[in-house]
Simulated assay, not measured.
Amino acid sequence: MSDSNKTDFTNPSTFILLGIPGLEAAHVWLSIPFSAMYIIALFGNFAILLIVKMEPSLHEPMYYFLCMLAFTDLVLSTTILPKMLSIFWFNAREINFSACLTQMYFIHNFSMMESGILVAMALDRYVAICHPLRHSAVLTNPVVARIGLVVMLRGGTLALPSLFLARQWPYCRTNIISHSYCEHIAVVMLACADIRVSSYYSLSVKLLVLGLDMCFISVSYIQILRAIFSLPTKDARLKTLGTCVSHLCAILTFYFPHLFASLTHRFSQHMALHFRILMANVYLLAPPMLHPIIYGVRTKQIQDRLLWLFTYKGT
């Protein structure tokens, strides 16, 4: 691996990821919490998928959407962490140009998919609370499958232009990326061209998708709260509101770190680089770790089946 950061190439065969610049001496120590987050995410999300498959009482829209969320979380965390750990543990900083762009595409694609799934879960809560008698008729299995397909196609389609633009730029200054993974802006900033199209498109799509999704979720919960406060008793209101707590927590763990990391990376250049990169890692790794914990703690059927998996000895 060459240490030079100046070259005349226009189509680099590899990029070099620096990990977390300024904290190289702490890479091994930083790998401990990141590895723990990844292990929890793997175990928790695989457990969600297995439990929903095994438990017939969970074969309903809310848990189908939860399975979609678990799958998306598994892909997101697996997209970045193995390479990050190879940097931290083995100083294996090189990444193939195509692999880098693929990683970038998966991050953008599945981040938008996750946002879309949270919207679908808000729709499920809205129908279940505001129109309970129509829930099974509105959210049938074919409708849930079509919603999942639309979410997948939206993420994949909107992420493609960023990939194509990043591939066509000439990279003639450096192939060193001051990041622990191939984050879109960190990659295209290395191009010796006017990258405003890439920057504006990426930011516009992110703000538009997240903005519209959060607006839809907000409108759904305004209607949900109206329905809840119209219930006759306090116990009924609390019980109904309790069915939304897990989803609300999932929303907070996804949108707040995501927006904070995106905005600080673009607009807070005075902020320490290592802090911005740490936040960018946390916003991708924290939600996959927290989502199965949130739903495991709040969902009795999942708790019971998980306990059964640990205690069942067979006969």
Rank of each mutant, 00 (worst) to 15 (best):
I185C: 06
A186T: 07
V187S: 01
V188T: 15
L190T: 08
C192P: 09
A193V: 01
R196Q: 13
Y200E: 09
Y201T: 07
L203P: 02
V205E: 14
V205L: 10
V205R: 00
L210M: 13
G211S: 08
L212S: 15
F216S: 11
I217C: 07
S218C: 14
Y221F: 15
Y221K: 05
Y221R: 08
I222L: 13
Q223A: 15
I224H: 08
L225W: 12
L225S: 08
L225P: 03
F229I: 10
F229Y: 09
S230K: 15
L231A: 01
L231Q: 12
D235N: 13
A236N: 04
R237H: 06
T240H: 00
T240G: 02
T240I: 03
T243M: 01
T243Y: 03
V245K: 09
V245R: 09
V245P: 02
S246E: 04
L248W: 08
A250Y: 00
A250K: 00
A250R: 00
T253D: 00
Y255I: 03
Y255F: 12
F256T: 14
P257Y: 01
H258S: 15
H258I: 03
L259D: 03
S262H: 09
S262D: 12
S262T: 12
L263F: 15
H265S: 13
R266I: 11
S268P: 01
H270G: 14
M271R: 07
M271E: 05
A272Y: 07
A272I: 07
A272C: 03
R276F: 01
I277N: 09
L278H: 01
M279G: 03
V282C: 13
V282T: 07
Y283H: 13
Y283V: 14
L284S: 04
L284W: 05
L285R: 04
P287L: 08
P288H: 12
M289H: 05
H291D: 10
P292T: 11
I293A: 04
I293M: 15
I294G: 06
I294K: 04
I294V: 09
I294H: 07
Y295W: 12
G296E: 00
V297T: 13
V297K: 04
T299A: 04
K300C: 01
I302N: 00
Q303Y: 06
D304E: 13
R305Y: 05
L306Y: 11
L306F: 14
L306C: 09
L306P: 00
L307Y: 08
T311D: 08
